[in-house]
């Protein structure tokens, strides 16, 4: 049974910009791949980079953080902190041997429904190229 590998992407979207941008993609009926699963946070600054590690450990093949453009954060600065953290965590994961294409970040504003679709397409393509994430996948317990 050779099913083509479909990556599973976990995305953290900030409520005010990226989540709204994703909603706009929906209202505009822009179609994108269903590989992406969205977790809503209030601000990209909320995203602890260890969430990304946890997601990869749980079995996600790719992760995405998306927030407001720098300078436009609804909470003023959250995305600046998120940017610093993301850049460092990506390097750390790369050092451990995780394909950097799995670890993504984007700036999507509330009016950028079309950009959101592009971001998803690119994230899925990169995760597809990197292959299934089996490096340190957590064992599933079956009680």
């Amino acid at each position: 049974m050779s099913e083509e590998y479909e990556p599973n992407i976990v995305a953290f979207l900030c409520n005010w910009c990226s989540y709204a941008g994703a909603d706009l993609a929906g209202t505009s009926r822009t179609h994108y791949l269903p590989n992406i699963k969205i977790i809503r946070v209030m601000c990209s600054g909320r995203v602890n980079p260890l969430f990304l590690v946890n997601a990869l450990q749980q079995g996600a093949d790719g992760v995405l953080i998306s927030g407001c453009h720098p300078g436009d954060c609804h909470y003023l600065e959250g995305n600046f902190y998120a940017r610093r953290r993301f850049m460092l965590m990506r390097k750390l994961l790369e050092h451990v041997g995780v394909d950097p294409g799995r670890v993504n970040m984007s700036w999507v504003s509330a009016s950028e429904g079309a950009k959101f679709k592009e971001v998803i397409d690119e994230t899925v393509a990169k995760a597809k190229e990197a292959g299934p994430m089996d490096q340190f996948r957590r064992r599933q317990l079956n009680w």
Partner: peptide, 14 residues
């Protein structure tokens, strides 16, 4: 964290 981690646990699994 304890409210987000369970979401990751569900959505992360392929």
């Amino acid at each position: 964290d304890e409210q987000i981690l369970p979401q990751i646990a569900v959505l992360g699994v392929r």
